[in-house]
């Protein structure tokens, strides 16, 4: 019997220890959840709670002071959060204290941060509502970052496509960018243009002297040309020629400038971007040149057709043939 009593005492101690441990554990867990001790309720409305759950901590200036009790959706833009906060915080939280959703560490639990308000605002009471602030959370940040990343990816993919197609197409742009011989060729072309325009200016010079002599009425030609219509026409033609040659001269200057730039640049993205503008310029310039030479051709044609200059042009051609023969 004595032995049995002894056993019973030990068993009693054993079981009591177990129960005490359990009660202590439950008390501490409960204490963390503010189940014991006096508390009061506090509300705040958020647009987005970012995964806040009942049981998450509420912090005031970084101190754990309570827990989230309930989360309700009011409408599609506002979520009502009920918090249970320690009684003593009634002396600290003010009407203009701001609640915000935060995260404990980088990957920790969500929590509600209450920032102290200003001293002039009144203290809160039970069941009061405090304003909320939308806070940047890591998730959102990451989401934006991801969007940015995606954009960058798209842009770089585009760039890749462009460069590849530029490489593959071997179009003018590629040639312009890559072929130095072309650039040289272009330079020589421009030199040619320059020389042509020099020739032109010579021709015009000759033309103007011719016209002057015609004006002064030397010979039959002058007689014939006394009619006022013809000289004015001629004047217009000559002016056109002048204008054209002027333009060509301008163009060739700008062309040399550009080609120097092309030669100078070596195909980086920046220069590519810059160069695309240049290419446009180039294209336009070419068109202008075309237009200019067209005009010039027209004028020349008109001159050729004018019987007055036929012989002059014939002589010119003969001389050219002679020169060609001499060269041969």
């Amino acid at each position: 019997m004595n032995k049995e009593t002894n056993h019973r005492i030990r068993l009693g101690i054993f079981v009591t220890t177990g129960i005490i441990f359990l009660i202590i554990a439950l008390y501490f867990i409960g204490n963390n959840r503010n189940m014991f001790g006096s508390t009061f309720k506090l509300y705040s409305t958020f647009q987005n709670v970012n995964g806040l759950q009942p049981g998450n901590n509420v912090r005031y200036s970084g101190i754990d002071v309570g827990t989230v009790e309930k989360i309700e959706i009011i409408n599609d833009t506002s979520v009502h959060v009920q918090m249970v906060v320690e009684e003593k915080l009634k002396e600290h939280i003010r009407r203009n204290s701001i609640a915000s959703i935060g995260t404990d560490g980088l990957m920790g639990n969500k929590l509600v941060n209450i920032d102290p308000g200003t001293l002039d605002a009144p203290l809160i009471k039970e069941n009061d509502e405090i304003p909320s602030m939308r806070s940047v959370n890591t998730e959102e940040m990451l989401r934006t970052l991801e969007l940015t990343n995606q954009n960058i990816a798209i842009v770089s993919a585009d760039l890749k496509d462009i460069t590849r197609s530029v490489q593959k197409s071997h179009g003018t742009l590629y040639k312009v960018l890559m072929d130095t011989t072309l650039a040289e060729g272009m330079e020589s072309t421009l030199n040619n243009i320059q020389s042509v325009s020099k020739d032109l200016s010579n021709i015009t010079g000759e033309l103007s002297s011719l016209v002057n002599s015609v004006k002064s009425g030397k010979g039959t030609v002058g007689m014939l040309l006394k009619d006022t219509v013809l000289p004015s026409n001629l004047q217009v033609t000559i002016n056109n020629v002048k204008l054209s040659s002027q333009r060509i001269a301008d163009l060739s200057v700008s062309m040399t400038d550009m080609i120097q730039k092309i030669n100078g640049s070596k195909g980086t993205v920046n220069s590519l971007l810059y160069d695309s503008a240049l290419v446009n310029n180039l294209k336009q310039s070419m068109q202008n040149i075309q237009a200019g030479t067209d005009n010039f051709n027209q004028n020349m044609e008109a001159l050729k057709n004018s019987f007055l200059f036929r012989s002059y042009f014939r002589n010119l051609e003969k001389e050219k043939e002679k020169a060609a023969k001499k060269q041969k």
Partner: peptide, 18 residues
């Protein structure tokens, strides 16, 4: 140590295990 342990625990951990 025990503060951190109990901070991490809640009734959903302790009661089902008991």
């Amino acid at each position: 140590f025990f503060h951190q342990v109990f901070e991490a625990l809640n009734f959903g951990d302790a009661l089902p295990s008991v």
